[in-house]
Structures are given as structure tokens and as C-alpha cells.
Amino acid sequence: MKILKGIVFSINSNKTVVIKVFIFFFIYKKRFFKFKKYLANDEFNICLKNEIVFIVQVKPYSKKKFWKILKIL
């Protein structure tokens, strides 16, 4: 069971949000980052844009949606 921390990037449709997760890494003492977007299930439509959330991996809700909102900070 994976748990990731990210920012709500957009609110697509009913019960679906896009979460942007940043990954930081170092190459030759320089700090770089990349990000990946995940579709997550928001059961009660309570997420707002730019909120920090924790998402957890669950069984698939649809073809691309494998994540569920665990906690909103």
C-alpha cells in the first residue's frame, strides 16, 4: 500500500481530482525535481485547488483512477 503526498492540481469532474506529486533528487550535488500527475477519487467533493493531500493506492475505480484521498492538510 503506497501513500503519497501531493497538491490538488485540478478538479476534473464529479468525484475526481488530479494530484501533482513532486519527486526531488540530487545529481552531482544539484537539486532537481520532477512531478507526476495522478487521478484520485474524492468521494464527497470536498477538495479545493492548491490543497495539500495524502493519497493512498487502492483497487481501480476506473481505467486510470487507482488512488483515493486519505487526508487533507
Rank of each mutant, 00 (worst) to 15 (best):
K64H: 07
F44H: 05
L70E: 01
I23P: 02
I55K: 00
N45Y: 08
W67S: 03
W67M: 01
F24A: 01
I27S: 12
P60Q: 06
K71H: 10
V58Y: 06
I19L: 04
L39T: 10
K5G: 10
R31K: 15
N45M: 05
G6R: 08
V58L: 05
N45A: 06
V17Y: 09
I11F: 07
I23R: 09
S10F: 05
I19M: 03
K71R: 10
F24D: 14
L4S: 00
V21A: 03
T16F: 09
S62R: 12
E51F: 08
K64W: 06
R31V: 15
V21M: 01
N50F: 12
F44G: 07
F25H: 09
V21P: 01
M1Y: 06
N41D: 08
F35G: 08
F26K: 14
I27Q: 09
A40Q: 02
K2T: 10
W67G: 02
K49H: 07
K68R: 07
K64G: 09
L73R: 04
K59N: 14
S13F: 11
K30W: 08
L48V: 09
I27P: 04
N45P: 07
F25A: 09
K71I: 05
I7R: 03
L70V: 05
K20Q: 13
Y28N: 14
S13M: 14
G6L: 01
L48D: 09
F24P: 07
F54Y: 12
W67V: 02
L48P: 05
K49M: 09
D42C: 05
R31F: 12
K15G: 09
L73A: 09
Y38H: 00
K64D: 12
F35K: 03
Y61P: 00
F66Q: 06
F25C: 06
V21L: 05
